[in-house]
């Protein structure tokens, strides 16, 4: 099999927040009745079920609440096909949809103390600590395009977008870093 290539080739922009291409990650869309999905999530990526708008685990193995009937599962890039099969087997007989979307997405890691500040420049979401606690999976838009992000801590966050717009999101984030901190949080 050919090696996975991420959309912006491992680019890094350093500033008050470091924007880093996080490389290829396994991602699986799982749709169905949330009440029936717990076993499949456990079997596929070994994580628990997230509650509304939350993420359980992380990029290496986790599940994020995407909508009332949808989850986004995370695993290593090489394990995606296997995890997909496990989820499919576990849900046999139910009404569900499962798809490997690893190659449709790009992931960026943000590091630095001004993450809330940086995202607030680009996105209409409320980024205050009360509205966006750690582990809250927020789907919104960055500039013109759809994106999702969550904060692991005040210094680290992960941003997911469609691969087709990855260079745009990377440029957007790095330009916003260039502008310097605002200091509202």
């Amino acid at each position: 099999m050919s090696d996975p290539r991420s959309a912006v080739g491992g680019a890094v922009y350093e500033g008050y927040v470091t924007v880093k291409d996080s490389g290829a990650h396994g991602m699986i869309t799982l749709r169905g009745d949330h009440a029936e999905l717990a076993e499949a999530v456990k079997a596929a990526v070994g994580s628990g079920m997230p509650t509304q708008r939350r993420i359980e685990g992380g990029l290496g193995g986790g599940a994020a609440w995407a909508s009332p009937d949808e989850l986004l599962l995370f695993c290593d890039y090489a394990d995606a096909a296997g995890a997909l099969e496990k989820a499919r087997k576990s849900l046999e007989g139910n009404h569900f949809l499962v798809a490997d979307v690893s190659d449709a997405r790009a992931v960026f890691a943000l590091e630095g103390s001004g993450i809330r500040d940086l995202l607030a420049k680009l996105c209409p979401a409320d980024l205050s600590p009360e509205a966006l606690p750690h582990g809250e999976f927020r789907r919104s838009h960055l500039g013109q395009v759809a994106a999702a992000f969550w904060l692991e801590s005040e210094e680290t966050a992960t941003v997911i977008c469609f691969r087709s717009v990855a260079p745009y999101v990377y440029d957007l984030l790095s330009e916003a870093v260039k502008g310097g901190p605002i200091g509202i949080f």
Binding site: Q52, R53, S67, P68, P124, A125, D126, R138, S140, H141
Partner: peptide
């Protein structure tokens, strides 16, 4: 009403 987020017009 489905995800509980207070969404601004640009997200809708």
């Amino acid at each position: 009403p489905y995800c509980g987020i207070e969404a601004s017009e640009t997200e809708l």
